[in-house]
Amino acid sequence: MATDYVIAKQVSKHFGHQQVLNQIDLTLPAGMIYGLIGPSGAGKTTLIKSILGMEAVDSGTVKVMDTVMPNRAVMAQVGYMAQSDALYETLTARENLTLFGQLMSVPKIKLAQMIDYAAGLVDLTSQLDKRVSGYSGGMKRRLSLAIALIQDPQLLILDEPTVGIDPELRQQIWTELNKLKDTGKSMLVTTHVMDEAERCDYLMLIRHGIALAEGTPAALKQQYAVDTIEQVFLKAGRMQDANDGNR
């Protein structure tokens, strides 16, 4: 179906002896915020990089925009925000945005307008001509998000987007993400902040490379008979450990 932006089937991956991803299925339709939650080292970033085609999978297939990954051309349609702020510190924010805009094939006439739009979204308009080396951690995070938005992509893949951002701005960003969603865009977001998980339309819990549970936040809470996603996560984790022990 053309409305599914991402379709991953039975994706497995291991580094050395360690199984990082174990037969993960993931389908991301248009107009949805999909949350990946799990502790660090669970395999969230590896899953994201596999979807982007930057990491080769051992088995299984990934399709983005109906194209089998890895595929270089499709990357222009995906806005990506890495877990670490990969920014050129000696350049200004505007120069960083310009560079990635050019790499993403944003037309020259549209570029200035897109920079204003993306910077406005993350509240960096007044700081655009400052060098990134003078930015705070939160500002760098916001600039990374602006770079992901520079080509106005239909699909956004955001790895821990709100780490180091103050609550007020985080609120603002989520409002923006929801607005983007309403225009038909989809987002794949990793987080380990549980109240953020509640804002997602659909959640997947990953632990030790295995998809423990998935569903809407409400459905998950009901399934595990608890009040918060945090409790869902803890309960699912304990059940996984118990199962491993029984083996």
């Binding site: 051309a73 990969a86 050129y88 790499l103």
Partner: peptide, 14 residues
């Protein structure tokens, strides 16, 4: 080491 290379390669650049 700063991850910008990996970030560059997340664009359609050859």
């Amino acid at each position: 080491t700063t991850g910008t290379l990996s970030r560059l390669l997340a664009t359609p650049i050859r």
